[in-house]
Design a binder for these strands. Sequence first.
DNA 1: AACTGTGAAATTATTCACAGCT
DNA 2: AGCTGTGAATAATTTCACAGTT
Lengths: 188, 188
Amino acid sequence: MIETVLNPQKKVPSPTIARLFTYYRALLESRETSYISSEELAKLTGCMAAQIRKDLTYFGEFGTPGKGYKVEELSQRLRSILGIDHDWDVVLIGVGNVGRALLSYQGLKSQGFKVTQLFDSDPKKIGLSCAGLKIKDITSMKEELQNTPVKMAIITAPANSAQEVANMLVEAGIKAILNFAPTRIFTP
Amino acid sequence: MIETVLNPQKKVPSPTIARLFTYYRALLESRETSYISSEELAKLTGCMAAQIRKDLTYFGEFGTPGKGYKVEELSQRLRSILGIDHDWDVVLIGVGNVGRALLSYQGLKSQGFKVTQLFDSDPKKIGLSCAGLKIKDITSMKEELQNTPVKMAIITAPANSAQEVANMLVEAGIKAILNFAPTRIFTP
DNA sequence: AACTGTGAAATTATTCACAGCT
DNA sequence: AGCTGTGAATAATTTCACAGTT
């Protein structure tokens, strides 16, 4: 699961994160165009108005007393908080059959992921291109990721090396791993 | 959302329900064949062992002190608690384009739903057959549902009548409504 | 007047720790 | 010895209620 961390000034309860998606959906469906009050949003979502207000203040104060929340701004803020206002750069490790399938699959893009680098350990593959990207040596991964903002990786390596790869990713500063290897991996 | 109610002896916290799915998935993936302890399941799911034990006791005591939980029994119990051990009988209201699409769509069946009755308000449709079921008059719905165990309905009626249909369903004892009408409806 | 933002109270959920069973 | 089931303790979350802003 992806938990977007934006303003961890105070600790955000995880049920709050889940509700933000609900608020966002309700907002998309609502006919409101200017301001919406916590009370109205409550009616739309089935949540309590006070809870909505509290949830939102974890990320700053953007309501107008007497009027409510500006719909356009609230939408934008929620998109930003939920991390759906931009694509997520990811690296893909293991350019085998599964990896290539994912690269040619449009679903990845439509879910907001953009593959920016490819890694593999097979010397025969290193240097080749796939989907417009050159396959790099996995041993250079930490170095390559040093000055990038990439925080997410997709593992499509064989089961027996997935755990090792996961360790390297954590080492390289990756915060989220989507594991397509047919095994379970453990991270701190 | 569907919350299966089996043994509401004590009130079951809703996070517990969510975790039961996790336990079930972990169990399916695990290689254990005889007994599994709360400790092992904890390692597999990332939950706390004490929490797993507490979660399970809401539905009875089925662990064996000194050994753990019998994998086969635990699986079966979880399936039963989660309501995925049998199909759910549903009725479908509104045999228009959306309704017919759903009826011919295999996804409904693969998700464990079985459509048992069809209703519509259009006199031209009443009496016709669709997917092997006769279309009944919506005004007879309450009566027709009287002696059936159906607790779920799918609404595919036009937006402007969806709310009215929902009211009738609640009246007829339906506990869960899947709304495919292009509108939002409210229920108690 | 209408609404937000927020401490404080109430409620709900998690974790501990241990008695008791196999 | 190893593990479950569970009250009691702790922690997290929700709700109330109201001061303060527009």
